[in-house]
Structure formats: structure tokens, C-alpha cells
């Protein structure tokens, strides 16, 4: 053979560290791009504000969020002439809406964020596997998704509530497992297309394992829709939680979330619209913040969008 030098192999331990720093550098780069875009910066600040408010709600409340003052039921906001100094009025049980929003935000954010993230992780993993091993596993998973699609979630929810009793943790677990079909259906055909592209073949001829091919080559190429689904589902899940509370699954009094506040206040909308509208505004801000974050995250993930724009003034 010819005499060109090959790099000598070293201990396997030496290979793990640079990979980790590289992925760290990559995530810093993506976050940097999110921060650099106006919508990204706005959404990050908005989410940060929401999280801070939720964390320090106990310090910010003006009244006790659970104390019922029956002499001050259905009071309009103080700036509309309401009595008792309630900034956003009181609900039919005389509880301060403003304080309840601050505290209720906590549970809503946790439910929305954690459930959406867990669902996205499960859906992404199963979608990747279904697309990559399309013949057997893919067929099996997609038929399973079809079956699940035909089963109403409410029926499953009621059955579970009867079986295991109400509980927020159970609700989140069920929601997280139920939502995978949306993700899997969305990405499975992109996975099938991507795995046939030459760069995947190149990785395979270089000896890359299926896990490596899936994680480093296919996943980044199908991540865009997953991010968007994730960010929109944060809001959806906050609302789903409130509708399930009615079934006895999920948040039960005296606990409350923005969703359950909204659901309770619907009944007395004509007496005290503020008790429904302001929690609604709270949910809307969470939804908007996450949708904007999703948009800018997706763009930041795509180097084709950002790196060319950086180098080509005509494209910006």
C-alpha cells in the first residue's frame, strides 16, 4: 500500500468528550440565533416573565387566592368601581381573580410545558423508528395510531379516573402518551424520504450505526414540524386539562389552574365576565409566547435559513 499516514486510533474514552462539547456549542449557537431574532427575543422575555411571575406568585398576590369572601362576590375590577380593591375583580365565590391568575399560572405552565415536551419526545422517537424501520415496526405503529385515533380520549380519561382516581400526575402521563400519534404521523413520511437521501447512504457506507443515523442525520431534518407541534400544543394542553377536570380527571378543587378558572367562570359569564376573560388572557399570553418561541426555534434550527442570511445581505 501507499505510505500516507493514517491518524492513529486512541482510547475510546477520548472520543466522547469532543462530541459533547460540539453538541453544547451547537445548542448555544441555536439559542444565540433565537436571541438574535426579534420574535425570539420577545418570546424568551415573555416566557421568562411568565415563569418568574408563577415562581414568585406568593409574593405578588394582593389577596389570598383561595379565601372566599362572601361579602365581596362578583365584584368588578377596582378600576371599574368594584369594592374591596380587587385589581381584576372577584369570582362568584368572592376570591380575588388577580391573585388566582398568578397562582393558577404555575400549574398551567407546568402542565403545558412538561406534557408537551414529553409528548414531543415520545412522538419524535416513535416517528423516527416507524419511518426508519418502515416495513414491520412502521406498519405496526401506524396501525396502532389508527386504532388510537378511533378511540375518544374522553372515554379513556373517564375509565382511568374511575380506575386510578383523579390526579394531576396521572393526567399528565396519559396526555403525554396519548399525543404521540400527531407527531409520528407528521414526521413518518419525512423520515422515510430523508433516509433515502444520499447523505444517509454516505453515513451508512462510512459505518454509522442506525442510532447515529437517526439521531445525527434524520432527526435534525424532521425537527421543524416537531418544534411547531410542540409549541402549539402547549396552549392546547392547558385547555385540554381544564376540560378534563370536568370529567374528574386532573385538577380538582381546591387546586386550580388557569384552565379550571376559565371553565368555572363560564357558568357565570353574565354576572362576572372578568373572572373568565382575565384567565383567558393569561392562557392567551402563554400560547402566544410559546408559538413565537416555536417559530424562532424552528428557524434557528435550520442553518439554511440563518447562515445564508448572515452572509447574504440581499436575503435578510
Amino acid at each position: 500500500m501507499n505510505g500516507t499516514d493514517t491518524p492513529q486510533s486512541t482510547a475510546a474514552a477520548g472520543t466522547a468528550a469532543p462530541a459533547r462539547t460540539r453538541s453544547k456549542a451547537r445548542s448555544r449557537e441555536i439559542l444565540g440565533r433565537v436571541w438574535a431574532s426579534p420574535t425570539g427575543k420577545f418570546s424568551v422575555l415573555m416566557i421568562a416573565a411568565l415563569v418568574l411571575v408563577a415562581c414568585f406568585a406568593d409574593l405578588l398576590v394582593t389577596h389570598s387566592p383561595t379565601e372566599q369572601v362572601l361579602s365581596e362576590t362578583n365584584q368588578p375590577p377596582s378600576w371599574m368601581g368594584g369594592e374591596g380593591g380587587h385589581l381584576l375583580g372577584t369570582d362568584p365565590l368572592g376570591r380575588d381573580v388577580f391573585s388566582r391568575i398568578l397562582v393558577g399560572l404555575r400549574l398551567s405552565l407546568v402542565i403545558g410545558f412538561l406534557t408537551a415536551t414529553a409528548t414531543a419526545a415520545i412522538g419524535l422517537t416513535l416517528g423516527l423508528l416507524a419511518g426508519y424501520y418502515e416495513r414491520f415496526l412502521g406498519g405496526l405503529l401506524m396501525r396502532l395510531a389508527d386504532i388510537q385515533f378511533a378511540v375518544p380520549f374522553a372515554a379513556v380519561g373517564i375509565a382511568l379516573a374511575a380506575f386510578a382516581g383523579p390526579g394531576i400526575a396521572l393526567l399528565m402521563a396519559v396526555l403525554a402518551f396519548w399525543g404521540w400519534t400527531n407527531y409520528a404521523r407528521t414526521i413518518v413520511s419525512s423520515v422515510q424520504q430523508t433516509k433515502r437521501l444520499d447523505f444517509v447512504t454516505a453515513a451508512r457506507t462510512a459505518g454509522a450505526s442506525p442510532v447515529r443515523v437517526l439521531v445525527r442525520h434524520i432527526a435534525p431534518n424532521v425537527l421543524g414540524p416537531v418544534i411547531i407541534l410542540w409549541s402549539t400544543s402547549v396552549g392546547t394542553l392547558i385547555l385540554v386539562e381544564s376540560s378534563l377536570s370536568l370529567l374528574g380527571l386532573g385538577v380538582q378543587p381546591p387546586d386550580f389552574s388557569l384552565g379550571s378558572m376559565l371553565a368555572d367562570a363560564q357558568k357565570t359569564l353574565r354576572l362576572s365576565w372578568w373572572a373568565a376573560v382575565f384567565p383567558g388572557v393569561g392562557i392567551a399570553s402563554v400560547v402566544i409566547a410559546f408559538n413565537l418561541l416555536g417559530d424562532s426555534l424552528r428557524d434557528a434550527f435550520n442553518p439554511a435559513l440563518s447562515s445564508i442570511a448572515e452572509n447574504d445581505p440581499e436575503l435578510t
Binding site: 491518524p7 492513529q8 486512541t10 477520548g14 469532543p18
Partner: peptide, 9 residues
Amino acid sequence: LVVHRIGDA
């Protein structure tokens, strides 16, 4: 190189 564990960074 990573796949075949050739060399360090």
C-alpha cells in the same frame, strides 16, 4: 473518523 474511533479531537 468518529465512527471508526480514529484519533482524538
